[in-house]
Each structure stands twice: as C-alpha cells, then as structure tokens.
Design a binder for these strands. Structure first.
Lengths: 200, 200, 200, 200
DNA sequence: TATGAATGAGGTTTCATTCAT
DNA sequence: GATGAATGAAACCTCATTCAT
C-alpha cells in the first residue's frame, strides 16, 4: 500500500460516486435512488460519500454542472473559432447532438430531475442553460447581420424547434439503433441550417 | 338535499383531488408532494382519497390517462374528418399545440414524471403515446401517397422535430407571455407543413 | 321478489358472513383478513355486516361460541346417556376427534386466534373450555370410582395428552389423506382407553 | 470506553429487541404489538431497529430460528451420543419438554404466530420442524430395529400424541404451579416410553 | 480519510367503524 | 334492512443525515 496506490484509490471515490449516481439517477430517477443503494453500488460507504459531497442534492448538482460546463466550453470553441459563421453554427449544432447522445444519462437527468434541486440551484442551472442558448442564438444573429441567414423567423421559434428536438432525444433514442450520434448530429444540423439559410 | 346536490358533492371529491394533484405535481413534482399536503389542499381526508384512488401512483396515472385520452380523441376527429389530408394534418398539429398549452400542467407532468409510475403503467402509457404518434404519422403517409407531401425526409425525423418542439413547450412557455396558444399552434403547424409540403 | 324470497335472502346474510369468516380466518388468520375483503367474499356490504354484528371481534366470538356450544352439547349427550361409563367416554372421545376434523376451520381458529378476542371474551371462552374438560374428566372420575379405570395417573396428565393430541390435529391433519375422521377418532379413543383401563 | 465496552453496547441492541419482542409477542400476540411499542419497551429507536432487522416479520423469524436451532442442536446431541437408544430417546423427550418450558414465550409464539410469517418463511419453518420430528422418529425406528420398541403402533400416532402434548403445554402450563419443567419432562418421557416399550 | 450505528421526522397506506340517506 | 362514502388514528417502513470513533 504505497502512497500512490492509496492516492489513486481515494481520488477514485468521488468519481465512482458520480459515475454510479449518473447511471442510477438516469435509470430509476433521483428520488427512487436511495443514498444507501448508491454507495453500495459504488462500493463505498455512506461516510465516505458525505466526506466528499454535502448532500444527495450536491451529487445531483455536480452532474448538472459537469454536463453544462462541458457543453458550454465546446460551444465557446465554435463561437470563437475563425471562419464563416454558418459553418461554425452547423458544427456546433452537430456537436451538441453528438455529445448529448454520448452523455445520454446526464442529458436525461437534466431534463427530468431539474425540479429536484433546491430552488436556488434550480435558478443557477436555468441561468446557465439560458446563457448557453443565448450564446448559440448570438451566432444566428451574427449570421443574420452578415446576411447569410434569413431574418423573418423569430429566434424563439428557431430555438424551440432545435433545442426541443435535442431535448426530445432522450425520449426515443436508443443506443445501437439505426443512427449513430455523429450521423444524427449531421441530420439535425442540416435541418437547422435549412430553416435558417436564405433560399437561392 | 335533492339528487343533483348529492351527485355534485360526491363526484366532487375525486375531481377536487385530481385538480389539486395536477396543480401540485406540476408545480413541485410528484415526489415532493406528500399525500398529506395534497389532501389538505383539496380539503378532503386521507381516508377519502384512498377510498377513490388505490394509491398516489393511481392518482398520477389518472392524470396521464385523462390527458392522453383527450388528445387521442381529438386526433381521431381530424383523422376521420372529410377533406384534403394536408388541411386536416395542419389542424391536428395546431390543435395539439393549443391543447398542450391549455393543459400545461398535465403536459409537464407527463414528460417529467412518467418514470415515477409503476413499470407496468409506464409501459401502458408509452404504448398509448406511441399509438398517438403512429396515427399522426399515418396522416403524413396518406399525404405522401397522394403526392402532396415530400417523401425524402424520414418519418422519424419529422416526428422528432415536431413532437420534440411540442414537448419542449413546458420548458419555456409562460402564460401571459407574447404568444397565445392558438397563435403558437398556427406557427408550429406552419413549420411542420413547410417541412412536409412539396416545393412548387 | 316475494316476501319469502326476500326473507330467505336476508336471513342468509349472517350465515354467509359466518361461513366466509370461518374460511378466511382459518386460511389467512384473523388479522390478515380485513372486513372489506370478508364482506366482499360473502357478497354483502359493510353496512349489512355491521347491522348483524357489532364488530369484527363479534364475528370471531360467534365462531368460537358456535363450535364450543356444539361440542358441549354432544359431550352432555354422552355424559347423560345410560350404560357403562367406559363405553360412553370412549364414544365421547371419538366424537370429539371426528367433529374437530369435520369443523377443522373452527378448530384451527380457536387455538390460533383466541388471543385476538377482547380480554373479557377470552376469559369467557377459556371458562367454557375449562368447563368442557371438567365434564370430560368427570367421566374419568366416575370410572375410577366404579373401579374400571386405574387411579395412579394424574388427571392433568391424561387431559394434557388427549386434548393436546386433539389440538395438534390442526397442525398436521389434511383432508383426503390416509385416515378419515371416524377412523382417527377410533384410534385416539383407543389410545385414551388403553391408558385409563386397568390392566388384566 | 474500551473495546469491550463498545462491543457490549452495540451487540446489546439486537439482543434487547429480540428479548423484548419475545416477551411482547407471547403476551399480547404479534399483531397486537406495534413496532412503536416494541422499540419503546426495548429503549431503542425505530431507526435502530430497522438498522438490524429488515422488518417486523424478520424479528419474528429470528425468534423462530433461535428456538428451533437450539432444539435441533440438543436433539442431535442425544441422537449421536453412545449408549442404548431407549435411554437416549427418553432423555431427548424429557429435554424437549424441559427446554420448551424454560422457553415458554418462544414456544407459544411458534405455535400461535407461525401463520403471520411470509409464506416463504412459513415453509422454511415448517420444513425445519418436520426435520426435527423425523430425526426424533428415526430414534424410534432405531429402537424398533433393535427390538426394544414395539412395532405395532404407527409412527404418526406416536408423534401426534407426544408432540401434541408438548405443543399443548403453552395452553395450560403456568410457572410456579405444581410441577417444574424437569419433573414434567420425566412424566412426559415416561408416558412416551410406556407406549413404545415392548411389554414383559 | 473513513466507518456504520443511530437518529427522528416524515412517508404511504390500511382499516375498523360511523352515519346520513 | 341496507348502503357506501367518509373518517381518523395508527400501522409499518424509509431515508438523508449525523457523529463518536
């Protein structure tokens, strides 16, 4: 039992907990998962869990944060990249679909268990998500100013259609079915662009 | 104490319970709502509730059933009506949006708390919803056979986009905001049709 | 719906209830049987039951009473009959076994659910049973005075052995098995007599 | 606060619960004893009880198990001991009576509340009891093969009489009355042997 | 850093009984 | 004689969290 060994094992505890919580919250829901079942499945004790997380709510919040931070970081990459906005928006859209599918458990939890967070944290997450959509729509605006996107359709409608469809994925998408994440990302991005791009 | 009086009073208990449950489940979630809080809000006793409903789950199921039965009945009306399929599909789409907004509480519950039902009932509800979508898409097929709808786009994509957007309504639509239910229904129907209709 | 018809039906209510209660209390125990299940099985309503019986306890008490009254009446028949006491005791013993088997449900209830009665009624039933045993043992004493039964063995031991064995029937006797009620009655009576009769 | 101290204190909770449950279940019956009354009497909290026992049923089962395991262990001692079978069987019989009286509460519970266990556990206990009787009767058979016991009386009758009488003890035996456990054991063993031993 | 026994409030549900009709 | 909706107390059990070690 060297130090490295021990360090590895203990640093694994929060990660194992998060991984197991993600799996279980997605599978049976946040409230149907008891702390005891969770720690048993993760192979740690209750005491250990409460050493790393203040509460069960804290665990849920961490899952939200991790997914949203990742998506926002990726979006920023496309927003700040060089090149024509149309190509960057299309890439960002495809990327959101692909990463939503790759992190389906987290995505399901976000849409299903947001209301289980404390009101305060619900507000924080809602703000973060609104921020994401605004940054996304800012690219649409950018394209409009440049004249490559049509200006007639209201932004709200565009957002509803696209984010609604992404959100809806968790309701029907099954791994191993017909389409892979990358393919589906292309489909969705294509539909978004066809609604935005000026005809002719 | 006439007959009508008695009928009203006794039939009022289940109805009051359903109404209050719908409101509370939508507002704070199914598991955040205790039976005690629910019956207090409805002004009945716990015993009375369990006289009419076998369990808290039963109450949730009744809410699901009521919404789905209503939507299906309305869809059937459009499916069996005379006239060109394009018009009937557009009307059905607008109607779904409008009734989803009018019954926003129920709609939110359906998408957020499905996983709180017993596995058996989850299957029943999923089957009912699948059935709804199939009937809806049958109208799309009908239009394709008649040559009024394009055949290139896969049905799954059409369904995902449209139903995803409807589903997503509960995440952002707020009563008293810009658009009313009828207007929004027209917008959504318009977008659906523009994706389906053959160009020129 | 003539009067006779109606009379028959209503007089059948207490009987149907007693019959069903006997069956259910024996099968699943007194406390595991709810009043609702009982009245449903008997095909009557709760109100009807409470019209004839003051409480669930009352129903249990009636079952006890009916069995004990019947057994006591039969014992009295043998006690007061003419002829040598040995023959009458043997017949009474065989009869107890046979009727216990014929009314196995009641017998099981008596030994298993006595403690569920109100303390007052428990005392009443215990007194009645003690009385039965005393009348039974009075016949043994009679035989001793006449010199046909041995006097060495204490009465308590005789009673314990015989009544213990009768009581124990409910634990192992299964209808349709090897021995019928009458045969087993003869076996038990034979064993009792062989322990009482003077040798040689 | 040494190690011994801690060990004693923590092991005391399940034991205190079992002791109190045995006393109360025997006195007023399993279902007349609420979990709240039980834990109050044992001086622990409900949570503590459910930490050690999965359910109220579990507590009942533990009482059954403890008595049956003890009895079986003692019987095995006599079965495997050296010496003539008649003496060993007599000793085993006397021992069963004595230990049944010493553990009268448990004995009463076993015969009165077996039907309150889950069906599965009822089967387990019945099997264990059947096993006990078979081991007991195997000693009778052994004696018959050696020619020391009569062969005419069927084993079932022997078992019914003896175990019936033992079982019946709980119905009439009162501590402090005439006979002590050891004496009564001798009486019962004597009666069993007199029925089994060949005459002359 | 980690344990796991213990807490105690609160959860859902059951049920014998009553009573207006 | 009979109904069945309604009561309300009490039942069993769960669970997130704490804390002495």
């Amino acid at each position: 039992m060297g130090e490295g060994d021990r360090g590895e094992r203990s640093s694994a505890v929060p990660e194992r907990l998060l991984a197991e919580a993600t799996r279980m919250f997605a599978e049976r829901g946040f409230e149907r998962t008891s702390v005891q079942e969770l720690v048993s499945a993760a192979g740690v004790t209750k005491g250990a869990m409460y050493h790393y997380f203040d509460s069960k709510d804290d665990l849920l919040y961490a899952i939200f944060q991790r997914l949203l931070a990742m998506q926002r970081e990726r979006l920023d990459g496309y927003a700040k990249a060089p090149g024509p906005v149309a190509g960057r928006l299309r890439a960002a859209a495809a990327d959101l679909v692909r990463t939503s599918i790759e992190n389906m458990d987290e995505s399901v939890i976000v849409f299903r268990s947001l209301h289980m967070l404390s009101p305060e944290r619900q507000r924080a997450i809602r703000a973060e998500r609104r921020d994401y959509q605004e940054r996304f729509l800012a690219m649409v605006e950018e394209g409009r100013r440049e004249g490559v996107f049509r200006a007639e359709v209201p932004l709200t409608i565009v957002a509803t259609q696209f984010f609604g469809a992404v959100h809806h994925l968790g309701m029907w998408y099954r791994r191993g079915g017909g389409l892979g994440g990358a393919e589906l990302g292309e489909h969705f991005a294509e539909m978004l662009m066809s609604g935005l791009l000026a005809r002719d």
